[in-house]
């Protein structure tokens, strides 16, 4: 059983994952890269309501796993994102719309 929060907390924020992430390289926005997505996943897993940026970040992961192959902490990044995304979709009312 995946302890998604424990996986998130393994992240040392080294940023190796960003070098190989296709969406981060396309947009150069942190929430479009694995390091940012792990922080967004933490919010989706632990907070009662989240910004729509969290949804945008988690919904745009390609699940390509390039990040996992270079992560020095061997974090199961895609599984964490999938779990966080599932929890958000269970109750979409948790997502606050941007003004």
């Amino acid at each position: 059983m995946l302890d998604a929060l424990a996986e998130v907390d393994k992240c040392a924020r080294c940023g190796f994952c960003e070098a190989v992430c296709p969406t981060y390289n396309a947009l150069r926005m942190r929430h479009y890269g694995p390091r940012g997505r792990l922080r967004m996943a933490r919010a989706a897993l632990a907070d009662s309501s989240v910004s729509s940026l969290v949804l945008e970040s988690l919904a745009t992961c390609l699940r390509c796993r390039a990040c996992e192959l270079v992560c020095p902490a061997s974090i199961r990044i895609v599984d964490v994102i999938m779990e966080a995304r599932r929890r958000l979709y269970e109750d979409p009312r948790r997502v606050r719309r941007r003004a």
Binding site: P22, A26, T60, L62, R63, A66
Partner: peptide, 24 residues
């Protein structure tokens, strides 16, 4: 490890981002 994704998995969510990924 380094072969990049085509962007396809998010083409129905963010088609413009998917296309940008594909162009790269």
């Amino acid at each position: 490890a380094y072969s990049g994704c085509c962007g396809g998995p998010i083409e129905s969510v963010k088609p413009d981002v998917a296309k940008e990924v594909a162009k790269i």
